[in-house]
Design a binder for these strands. Structure first.
Lengths: 118, 118
DNA sequence: GGATTATATGAACATATATTCATATGAGAA
DNA sequence: TTCTCATATGAATATATGTTCATATAATCC
């Protein structure tokens, strides 16, 4: 019970953070986010051309990023123009880029991505 | 070719960011990180008791967090004491908590975590 | 020494998820 | 209207990954 009181109720926060970081934990979605970090505003076709992936794939991932509050979308004629959703996302990306720069060796060996050599 | 030159070579950065965010994209690992955000330094047994999960599970996840440069470990007798690895991790966590707080509705509907209602 | 405690890790399995394919919607052009 | 172009999305599949179980290592205590 004392253990229980000391334990913080993080249920909704945990779900939100898991969702948020999951959205950033994919190579294709990261490519999209980095692209939007360079150029403010891009259509689906822009991303298809720049990233060399299928329109279906890009749209699926944009749907994920949009639902997770990482990008926002604005209809312009028949185009959908996507931008990063606010400064916090940019802050996190910049800080994360700094962090991995300072720890690249250990991170590249991380077994979430690939098993260490046999 | 002009397309090629405009395209930034992000290969290692992408792999590192994917690895980093993947490490944070799991509920159990987030529980560990949030715990270490509250109390500086915790042994595996501390986490087992506080989080109510098996020792094996905690150790597996700590291995991941350690490899990805999110936590660091210090042997103290037969205990392994874990702490967050630097201020950048704390910054990212705090900014992410702010962000999801400002977007909780859309994030809770994110289909990375669960399908939207039929 | 043996026993106990603390931690790490390999293997197996069940589930989650990224990608592809097919197709639907919707806007603008002819 | 009909024909493209731009985008979104459901279904299917292959792969990735979280969890459990069993066990190994290593330190401390008796």
């Amino acid at each position: 019970m004392s253990q229980q009181t000391e334990r913080v109720n993080n249920e909704p926060l945990l779900t939100e953070l898991e969702s948020f970081f999951s959205a950033l934990a994919d190579r294709t979605r990261l490519e999209i986010v980095l692209l939007l970090l360079r150029k403010e505003g891009a259509s689906v076709q822009d991303m298809v051309k720049e990233l060399g992936k299928s329109q279906s794939l890009i749209s699926h991932h944009l749907s994920c990023l949009r639902n997770c509050g990482i990008v926002k979308m604005e209809k312009r004629g028949k185009f959908s123009v996507y931008t990063l959703n606010g400064e916090t996302v940019k802050d996190i990306m910049r800080t994360a880029i700094d962090h991995v720069g300072a720890h690249s060796k250990s991170i590249l060996a991380c077994d979430v991505i690939r098993e260490e050599g046999s």
